[in-house]
Simulated assay, not measured.
Amino acid sequence: MNARTEPAEAEAEPETPARPPLIREFLLVAGLFLVYKLGRQLATGHTGDAFHNARRVWHLERAVHLPHENAVQSALLHGDTLARVANTYYATVHFPATLAFLVWLYVRRPAHYVWARRVLAAVTTAALVLPFTFPLAPPRMLAGTGLVDTAQLYGPSVYGPPSSDHLSNQFAAMPSLHFGWALMVAVGLIAATRSHWRWLWLLHPLITLLVIVGTANHYWLDSIVATAMLAVALALIRRPRRTAGTAGLGVGRPVTREPVLVGAGR
């Protein structure tokens, strides 16, 4: 019998995810950042409640034996340089790192981009509710803790006096979106890539945590609440499955199949 060739049974190939329209995504992401800034502004005021809640958080952390924020700050205050580096990290890394993360996913991993954008939007929206219900002064403002405002002492500082600061709400310490976004950047990059080194992205939220605590801008509890919010969002918003693209083969790259010889050798 003559040999004949037949294609192997078709296998399901990963389809290239449709990349969302660029203009629409630009407007959505810009809107997310705008809501983040304006939403915190709407929650200004409630100074008395903010300081009352700050004392409650401080005493709760001591009651459950969380480490003292002073230990982290003491490490920063061994020299002016380390304190300035921490202040600079706090002031300059938060937004650019998150934006770079979203841009990279949009270009290289469209499906993961949509997932990450939805998670960030959900966490940010939920986080904007807390300042209305639980205003919180940061530890740098709380007397009797032994903490200092490193940004005011060594610079650079992103905040002015609370009474005249019209660009941010300094009584919205909980949750820490600095930490929540940094953790999502790490989670998103770990989920979207396959490199053995991808777990090093966890250094970003770890450094962010030490910075926000060491500069006395946040309590440990602010980061714990942000982590819980992120965990809920990740549980509710399904992550896309890995495809050939996330395995290093290129998104949507066709898989080569050899023809099968049927009847050969009979």
Rank of each mutant, 00 (worst) to 15 (best):
M141N: 03
G245A: 09
L202D: 04
A3S: 14
V64W: 14
R253Y: 06
F171D: 04
L210M: 10
G250E: 08
H196T: 14
T44L: 12
R238P: 06
W199C: 07
L130N: 06
L105W: 00
Y89C: 11
W201Q: 04
Y106D: 03
E13Y: 10
D149C: 02
V211P: 02
A228D: 01
P21F: 06
R19W: 09
Y219C: 03
P156H: 02
V29E: 05
L34A: 15
T256H: 14
L60W: 15
D49W: 14
P20K: 11
R84Q: 09
G45V: 07
H112D: 14
F134G: 00
A226I: 01
A182D: 08
V225W: 07
L102M: 09
H94D: 14
E13A: 09
R55E: 15
L142W: 09
E13F: 11
P20F: 11
A116N: 04
V251L: 11
H59T: 11
R238W: 11
A244D: 14
S168E: 13
T16Q: 12
V93W: 12
A151S: 05
R4T: 14
L76R: 02
A122T: 12
L105A: 01
L38G: 03
N169F: 00
P175N: 04
F171P: 04
T227G: 14
S164N: 03
L27E: 07
L177H: 07
Y113R: 03
P131Y: 05
G48W: 00
